[in-house]
Write a protein that binds this DNA or RNA. Structure first.
Length: 288
DNA sequence: CGACAGGTCGGTA
DNA sequence: TACCGACCTGTC
């Protein structure tokens, strides 16, 4: 990774956001997002990006987030980071509601993960990332996205590129997408990009539409089933009722609640965890 | 070297 | 509606 040519700003502190080191790592690099790279020297520091915003993030001794950026537009880029970290959200309220469920397993995770957050990512990036994620390990997903950025995206600074737009993906030769090691996901990604454009669908609607309607639109795209749709809704549209059921959650729910059927798990999650099921999912996921 | 992977799709019963 | 193999290809 080439960080030399990048003009970093001075580090500034975000007073309102703090993490335990474990939660910091889990939030940035635990499977929600795939654009953060841990620094070699400091294990509580990451370099990463979303849209065309490039950041260094690190924890200070108090657990506050400090950031440096590589842009001249200070105010705009700080606002975008605050949005990304979803600093307006009151996690105390959310966590108290989950505590009230009186679920022993959940309470244990709430206790050991006091500062876990759900990132508020650009919706297009979550669609691209999670189409790439099917049947892949996290390192491979990161590799695919790195290549998509490099081969089809726009240059930001150093070795960093933004993810390509849906226009770019829709019109690219399929071979160029295949070169990004997407395998059978390449045509899924291209077809989804084409459909979103053809529908003239405003992806911002996914955060305001009825949950089932939003999910139905997403699963109507190619390469997106129940699990990936819920990831997109949770990480890209702030739909906390979305409960992605992946192999880890299945194992976890089988062990903790004796349920192993994905549809039964979704029903259980809706009834048991309710409006913040997605946050519970992240807690259970982190425990696995 | 072979099995399997933060799943989805299409066909079958 | 529910179950199953195929799907690309890099890790383990």
């Amino acid at each position: 990774m080439n960080l030399q040519k990048i003009n970093w700003s001075e580090f500034q502190t975000l007073d309102s956001v703090y993490f335990t080191p474990t939660d910091f790592a889990e939030t940035l690099d635990g499977g929600q997002a795939f654009g953060w790279y841990r620094d070699d020297e400091n294990e509580n520091a990451y370099t990463g990006l979303f849209d065309s915003n490039l950041f260094k993030l690190r924890l200070n001794d108090s657990g506050n987030v400090e950031f440096a950026h590589a842009s001249k537009k200070h105010k705009i880029i700080i606002a975008s980071l605050k949005k990304y970290l979803d600093i307006e959200r009151d996690y105390d309220i959310l966590r108290k509601k989950l505590f009230k469920i009186r679920d022993t397993h959940l309470n244990k995770e709430l206790h050991s993960r006091p500062t876990l957050r759900i990132l508020n990512q650009p919706i297009n990036e979550t669609i691209i990332a999670f189409i790439c994620s099917s049947s892949k390990r996290i390192v491979q997903i990161k590799q695919c996205l790195w290549l998509l950025r490099k081969n089809l995206g726009s240059h930001i600074a150093g070795d960093f590129y933004s993810l390509p737009t849906f226009e770019k993906i829709a019109n690219a030769p399929l071979e160029k997408i295949l070169d990004c090691k997407l395998g059978f996901r390449a045509k899924y990604l291209q077809q989804s990009a084409q459909k979103i454009l053809n529908d003239s669908f405003d992806l911002n609607n996914l955060s305001s539409m009825p949950y089932l309607e939003a999910k139905k639109y997403l699963t109507g795209l190619s390469g997106i089933g129940d699990k990936i749709a819920d990831c997109i809704l949770l990480f890209g549209a702030q739909r906390f009722e979305a409960f992605p059921v992946d192999t880890w959650i299945i194992k976890s729910c089988e062990k903790l609640y004796g349920i192993s059927n994905p549809n039964q798990i979704r029903t259980f999650a809706k009834n048991h965890f309710g409006e913040y099921a997605g946050y519970a999912q992240q807690l259970l996921f982190a425990s696995s």
